[in-house]
C-alpha cells in the first residue's frame, strides 16, 4: 500500500479481516472441530460447503435487489452492483457444487445424484446466472443491455428460493433440514463456532471482492466511454 503511495482504505481493511477470518475458520474446522462419527473426516468439508452455498444465495439476492433498484432509479451504480454480485454468486455457487461433489464421492459413492432435489435445483440456479452473465457478455455495454439484464436478474431470482426450499418440497436424501431450525438437537458449540467463522470469512470475502469487482467495472466503463469519445472525435 505504501509502495504505490495509495491510501489505506476500508476495502483493504475488509480484505485483511477476510484473510484473518479465513485462517481462523480453517484452523477451527481442521484442528478444533470434532470428527464426525459416521462420515469421518469427510464431513469437515461442510465448513466450506455450507458458507459458500449461503453466501451464493445472498449474492443472488443482491443481484435481484440491485436489479429492482436499477429498474427504479436507473443509476449506473446499481447495475454495477448486479453484475459484480452475479459473478461472485456464480463463483461461490461453483465452489458449493464442487465441494458438495467432492464430499459425495467418498460418502455416498458418486460425484452426482439426480434424485437429490437441492443438488439438482442448485445446478439450475447456477445455470440461470451463467445465462445471465452470458447475456451480459454478448450484449453491447449500454443502458439497453443493463435494462434487459435487470429483468433477467429479477426473473432469475425464482431459482434461488427453488433451490433453498427444495429440501422441503420433494425427494431429499442428502441434504438434511437445517439443524438450527429443527430445534430439538441443537448443534454443539464445537460444530457451530467453526461454521459461524466460516460464514464470517466467506461473507467478508464476498464484500471485499464485491468492492473490488465494482471498481474494475467502473474503470472498464470509463475506459469504454473514453474510447468511444476518442473514436467520435
Amino acid at each position: 500500500m505504501s509502495l504505490t503511495g495509495r491510501r489505506f482504505t476500508v476495502t483493504d481493511a475488509i480484505g485483511i479481516a477476510a484473510f484473518l477470518a479465513m485462517l481462523i475458520a480453517l484452523y477451527l474446522a481442521i484442528v478444533e472441530s470434532p470428527i464426525e462419527r459416521v462420515q469421518g473426516i469427510h464431513q469437515k468439508i461442510f465448513y466450506i460447503h455450507v458458507p459458500t452455498a449461503l453466501v451464493g444465495y445472498i449474492a443472488f439476492g443482491v443481484v435481484a435487489f440491485a436489479s429492482i433498484m436499477y429498474v427504479w432509479k436507473r443509476t449506473d451504480r446499481w447495475d454495477r452492483v448486479a453484475v459484480a454480485s452475479a459473478e461472485l454468486g456464480v463463483l461461490f455457487t461453483t465452489l458449493m457444487l464442487a465441494t458438495g461433489s467432492i464430499w459425495g464421492r467418498p460418502v455416498w459413492g458418486a460425484w452426482w445424484d439426480w434424485t437429490d432435489a437441492r443438488l439438482v435445483t442448485s445446478l439450475v440456479m447456477w445455470l440461470v446466472y451463467v445465462a445471465y452473465l452470458m447475456f451480459r457478455s454478448l450484449g453491447e455495454s449500454g443502458p439497453g443491455t443493463y435494462r434487459s439484464a435487470a429483468v433477467i436478474g429479477i426473473l432469475g431470482f425464482v431459482s434461488v428460493p427453488l433451490s433453498y426450499f427444495s429440501i422441503w418440497l420433494w425427494t431429499n436424501i442428502l441434504h438434511p433440514v437445517p439443524t438450527l431450525q429443527s430445534s430439538t438437537d441443537r448443534p454443539e458449540g464445537s460444530i457451530l463456532v467453526p461454521f459461524l467463522f466460516g460464514m464470517l470469512a466467506f461473507t467478508l470475502l464476498y464484500v471485499y471482492l464485491m468492492s473490488f469487482r465494482m471498481r474494475v467495472e467502473e474503470s472498464q466503463r470509463e475506459l469504454n466511454e473514453l474510447r468511444a469519445a476518442q473514436e467520435a472525435s
Binding site: 435445483t121 439450475v124 445455470l127 440461470v128 445465462a131 445471465y132 452470458m134 447475456f135 454478448l138 433477467i152 426473473l155 432469475g156 425464482v158 431459482s159
Partner: peptide, 11 residues
C-alpha cells in the same frame, strides 16, 4: 441466447 436463458428458467 434464447434457449440458454429459457431452459433453466423452465425447469
Amino acid at each position: 441466447l434464447l434457449p440458454i436463458m429459457l431452459l433453466p428458467l423452465l425447469v
